[in-house]
Design a binder for these strands. Structure first.
Lengths: 353, 353
DNA sequence: CCGTAGCATGCAAGCGCTTGCATAATACAC
DNA sequence: GTGTATTATGCAAGCGCTTGCATGCTACGG
């Protein structure tokens, strides 16, 4: 360390001990004054605080978290690919989480993983690197929930699972949104609707499929078994699926998409078939409010159930922090609201030829 | 804590002490065995390691970092907006960093901020929350570099600055890439080229402008002063700029874009003017390899200097970790390679009418 | 003027780990 | 069998903070 002396030239109090020394007080008093503990008279507190400020003192987070048993840090565990795929709403969730932790003065530890997520969660828990964790994309029957309960690490799930275990979550209102979208198309006279859903292993996909059928059932109808397509949430699959279904013997009159990415593919497929969206064929969609993919910007603009996945991210982090700090008791369940925004992509179904 | 006893039911060794007790060894020996210190016989080491594994023991990261003075965590400080903007290569950098820290077994602490970055850096440094930090988007004369040197916090900059201070960086080869792109257009006979550059406050923008002029100078030419446009890196500004310049009295024959986002806007503007890319007007671009925005996928495909900003992210983290661990000495400077990929967006300039 | 309540502050243990130094045990040369 | 290397392990002091408990002091009623 060639510059060791220069460090001492700044009369910065690097630690509590020297700060206490400078003030002629004990570490305990200084520590308590800085944390505004009751029993410390206001005058001392002010004296200590201003001395700390002048010295540029900040408590050592490592020592503090060891003594306190809390690190004021939350973790986010996610498969590395979610940052690599072009079409992902993950970044928006991350932005929401970032906003929340900034406002609550927490830190965010990113835990990307490849392969075994359980191992990552175990490591995070037993190494006490974080006070709690956010997990995403739960499966229908997700083993991580039981694991985290067993590890006694506070956690919040983005989405729901079917497990019996108690857990906190923030989820999109899939049930109502998809029922609403389906009902809208039915109202407009559509009966031959293709729902482009996500991959069946995720719980929200099942929920959406059920809502779709429920909307039909509410009018005494039953959609044909092939009405729902279970494919990934990308433009490419939206395109391929639409292309395939448009060459069905009986062409669908409407498409319901799970994401704006898929909807974009559907628009393209319709264009290639020379069909006009909102005239020849109707399209509706669920819109998570992903940056740069607004349903409002589609041409023609896309009727959609709008929600903010960014707000969901904020909510996730806020709930987790409340849980960690014991401000709220048991499992918190939060369903994010949505609204149906009517735009130009839906027309009355043409009478059957 | 209602479940306190159940914790003890698992005979997991929660800490070194109990693990040592179980093994009939001292904490020192167990600690050294786990870290494979020399002087610990192989047989003891194996015994300890397997016992630790069986007990599911993992060292407490908080205690470890306090004792060690290192947290095996790096920080990434960035303005919150960079996660909110739709058109950003930041996520790709993040993906690269994530990959690298996973492979080196480090953690990544995200420090989004709004407003005063210097305060964030100060906090990060004096609270010892991270061992080092990555900063991005340096200004021509960036004060953060001096600050971090003063704080003695290891850091790496994504990009370069003009400051005298020593610092490590990873940067795109802006100089050669833009000279190469400009030369290509000049080779094809273009003289009336509009370069759509970034905002002038960033150092890379200045470098790119200089390279553009240098390519002209190499043939004894000088571009007109309005040849370079300093605008943000978005589709919208690419579009607006191109629209504006296409109605110049003398229409440009080629556009050189700083990012694929801008190039996308230029394509759209040309389309609206009824001009064919690669026939009527040529377009070249620098392509950072941003997810989902490949120059190869443009129609017609876009000639570009290709680099991987994701690899740059990896490099950033690897260098920072080497710096932290003292594996490399002073400032490391790394310029990422690129290659010029010829595609269909460039044609010979039409002879002047 | 004494006793005691209450206020301001300090002592010291402890959070769980690392590590310099010491010590006990063994090996080997003579 | 003694002396010295060498090997295997342990002791205890920190890392910088928090906090339960103790202590000295002032103030006030009687």
């Amino acid at each position: 360390m060639p510059h060791d002396e220069s460090k001492r030239l700044h009369k910065n109090a690097a630690d509590l001990k020297t700060l206490a020394l400078q003030l002629g007080l004990s570490q305990s008093t200084v520590s308590r004054a800085l944390r505004a503990h009751p029993g410390i008279p206001e005058t001392t507190r002010l004296r200590v605080v201003s001395a700390a400020e002048a010295a540029g003192y900040r408590p050592n987070a490592r020592a503090r978290s060891l003594a306190l048993g809390r690190a004021e840090t939350i973790g986010l565990s996610f498969p590395l690919e979610r940052l690599q795929l072009p079409e992902t709403n993950f970044v928006d969730v991350l932005a929401g989480i970032s906003t929340a932790i900034t406002s609550r003065n927490y830190n965010l530890l990113l835990s990307p993983f490849q392969g075994d997520e359980a191992a990552v969660l175990r490591r995070l828990a037993s190494s006490k690197a974080v006070d709690g964790i956010i997990i995403t994309r739960p499966l229908v029957d997700d083993p991580r929930i039981a694991l985290l309960n067993e590890l006694r690490l506070p956690f919040v799930v983005h989405g729901r699972s079917e497990v019996e275990e108690p857990y906190s979550f923030v989820d999109t209102d899939n049930d109502n949104a998809f029922e609403r979208l389906t009902t809208l198309l039915l109202d407009y006279g559509h009966r031959h609707i293709v729902a482009i859903n996500g991959l069946a292993q995720f719980r929200y996909v099942a929920a959406r499929a059920a809502s779709f059928r429920r909307a039909f059932a509410a009018r005494g109808l039953t959609p044909p078994p092939d009405a729902i397509e279970f494919v990934s949430m990308t433009e490419a699959t939206g395109y391929e699926t639409a292309m395939r279904r448009l060459s069905d013997a009986k062409r669908p009159t409407a498409f319901l998409c799970g994401s704006v990415f898929q909807a974009r593919g559907v628009y393209r497929a319709l264009g290639e078939h020379g069909l006009k969206v909102g005239i020849d064929v109707s399209v509706v969609c669920h819109d998570d409010g992903v940056r740069g993919f607004s349903a409002a910007d589609f041409v023609p603009s896309l009727t959609a159930t709008a929600t903010s996945i960014r707000s969901a991210g904020e909510e996730l982090a806020l709930i987790l922090i409340d849980l960690i700090e014991g401000k709220v008791p048991g499992p918190i369940r939060k369903i994010m609201p949505f609204e149906l925004v009517l735009r130009d992509s839906v027309a009355l179904a043409r009478p059957e030829p």
